[in-house]
Design a protein around this nucleic acid. Structure first.
Lengths: 229, 229
DNA sequence: CTTTGTGAATATTTTCACAGCT
DNA sequence: AGCTGTGAAAATATTCACAAAG
């Protein structure tokens, strides 16, 4: 039983994105060459990535876009719907609630929560805002697996605790606060500052501008530069 | 002249975050052991990460928190201020404008732009919203290096074009749209869906729950699981 | 002729383990 | 006594290169 590198899983969702664009443009077949170049990945790596899960291509032809999308969705688990509890009905929460692409990938915001009595009872995108104190009960009774934290940073840990109490297994933290959760709950932090800092290095690093070893064409998120020391 | 792995740069900003928390708690010295365990990184890796840039520690003692923060900030380039152009004054834009932590790391939103005549001239967090058509001129004249795209996805490419025209070197795309920029401009996409998809795999993957090879304690963003095929 | 799937080769990253400094 | 900095080893990941398939 072989380990699957995390990089593979990350790339899989990149491929999925590209494949969906291809599909929208009416492209029915792709080669690893084509898929690789639009994802910024070496074609051999694309092919090897798939072999972890099976053999999806046709020699001499390539991959059927539709089928490959289905395979990747099944692998990632986005072939079935997933319910989300969104905590925080402020600007960030509202932005997330309006985020298209969530639905497209089978994610469904099942409930929104806030602390502010002024917001409770209001509607955001056809969803009523519930009192945050009812969160554990509601997430349990509706089997919500995913929580998104979009509250002010000082309330982030509190929100996390309620989500854990409510039995969610995945938490996306949109707050700069470092929060902690018990083992068994997956926590992902999405800190824009972290990304900016990362970016900065390649921007400013003493003179020598970052010449990437390999081009990651459309998303530019994986480069490497020469040492400056 | 040695290549610096991108992973090193990514971890550096994680360390920085932890170090700032330590500092806020009055901790003056850390060992690689301590820093590593709060960042979810092997202590030897922490030490080696630093050796790419110099030797910052004291044998037998550890690292001075204050000094290490300064070193990392200088390496990343966050020791000097950086100006940001924020495109989009809707919910997402407002949320970003209110994001604490930007300032804390020397990022400064220098101007906000929108297309909507109803928003132009309004104030968000003491900043006037400018007409997006003036973006290139303003970013050029104020030397803005970083652009954040927080507009509806259909306008994302247009926003990117204006930012490029205005001479920014880094673009953070908060839109699900795949946008393209000329070489020389760094583009980072921050797609919440991508993160959720990634997460999902470890959630649902056929039975066997992801037992990580190494624990990434506080952020849980780098695990690995057994093959299911 | 084209493109996959994959053994073997390479390259990179991570970890161990310990000499050496404070 | 405690912890860094780092060669050397181990573990991983990526890429090459080609046989086999359509």
């Amino acid at each position: 039983m072989n380990d699957i590198p995390e990089g593979v899983i990350e790339r899989l969702s990149t491929y999925l994105n590209c494949l969906i664009k291809f599909q929208q443009n009416g492209i029915e077949t792709v080669s690893s060459e084509r898929l690789g170049s639009s994802s910024g990945v070496n074609p051999a790596e694309v092919r090897r990535d798939f072999t972890y899960f099976g053999t999806f291509g046709k020699k001499g032809v390539g991959y059927d876009v539709e089928t490959l999308i289905q395979h990747i969705q099944r692998i990632l688990g986005s072939d079935e719907p997933h319910k989300i509890a969104l905590v925080g009905a402020g600007n960030l929460g509202s932005a997330i609630a309006s985020y298209e692409g969530l639905l497209q990938h089978g994610f469904h915001i099942a409930a929104i929560f806030d602390k502010d009595p002024g917001k409770i009872g209001e509607n955001i995108r056809h969803l009523e805002v519930f009192d945050i104190k009812d969160l554990p009960q509601i997430t349990k009774s509706t089997n919500i697996e995913i929580g998104i934290i979009a509250v002010p940073p000082t309330s982030a840990q509190e929100a996390a605790n309620l989500l854990v109490e409510g039995g969610v297994s995945v938490i996306l933290n949109y707050t700069p606060a470092l929060i902690s959760v018990p083992a068994g709950v997956q926590l992902h932090n999405t800190d824009p500052v972290q990304q900016l800092l990362h970016t900065l290095y390649y921007l400013s690093s003493t003179g020598d501008k970052g010449l990437p070893r390999k081009k990651r064409i459309p998303d530019g998120s994986k480069n490497r530069i020469k040492a400056t020391h």
